[in-house]
Amino acid sequence: MATALTRKDFASDQEVRWCPGCGDYAILAAVQKAMPEFGIPPEKCVFISGIGCSSRFPYYMNTYGFHTIHGRAPAIASGLKISRPDLDVWVVTGDGDALSIGGNHLIHVLRRNVDLNILLFNNRIYGLTKGQYSPTSERGKITKSTPVGSIDFPFNPITVALGAHATFVARSIDVEQKHLGEMLKRAHAHRGASFLEILQNCNIFNDGAFNDLTDKAIKAEHQLVLEHGKPLIFGKNRDRGIRLNGLRPEVVTLGNGVTENDLLVHDETNLGLAFMLGNFEPPMPTPVGVFYCESRPAYDAEAAKQIEMVTAKQGKGDLNKLLRGGDTWTVN
């Protein structure tokens, strides 16, 4: 590229149509800001989405885009990436799209480790269909379809992804632009399926779902920012941390004989730790950052390798040979 790319190069001419105040705007801004830094020209980038408010995303990116059908984006993106490993392929999905109707595709794309960047916008509600509870809604949620409260137990996207043997699992928050930008970069840099859950406020149907984590006055008490190799510390005064009591994590306050040395140190490569942190629910703080990152061959690269290997061994396919496979005979 002769001139450096800017965020404008990634913005399409389509009018953005989310509700004013929707968290999706902030995510769009963060992605458009991050993309130029990857140095990949827009024509090499593809955004594939399912159905939902979040899945409108591709229309606003000046890249190739495919707004597909509900829940199926991971499958469509897999076919594209496997046959076109040269492309930078992103999946944008919602909590309903990815974990309800598309749950099957999500777990399989993660276990296969197809080299995709998967962004799950989790607003813990069905936005587009106007406010039914979703698989990530907390138990007892009152919505139009659950007037006396939902009775099903929610999924936790992070532990679902870890359970599916994802090789990169992270979480960020729509309004934490700097952190979100960093997580996008990490996700993009990872070879294989990167799974990034982005907590997103739906100010129409589930406003304030993540208030604890976004309200400036209190967020430091609730956010636990994960950093590889660093002790798990949080709190406005950075005076609280996570310590292991036997095999159980507990929140401790530093001082009175408790020092940083007593705290758990984050290790992105430790799957057990990732599961433990993934399971943190209030009153424990909510972790954000990279839970887990492991290097494992990506499906698309392996598929390409097999084609290369077989071609090297058997030679490039010869159609005349193909037709003559099996016994032939000649009739005069």
């Binding site: 199926r72 499958a75 993106a77 897999s78 076919g79 496997i82």
Partner: peptide, 9 residues
């Protein structure tokens, strides 16, 4: 769906 993705490509 994977085939549709491949066709897109």
């Amino acid at each position: 769906c994977s085939a549709i993705g491949a066709a897109f490509g």
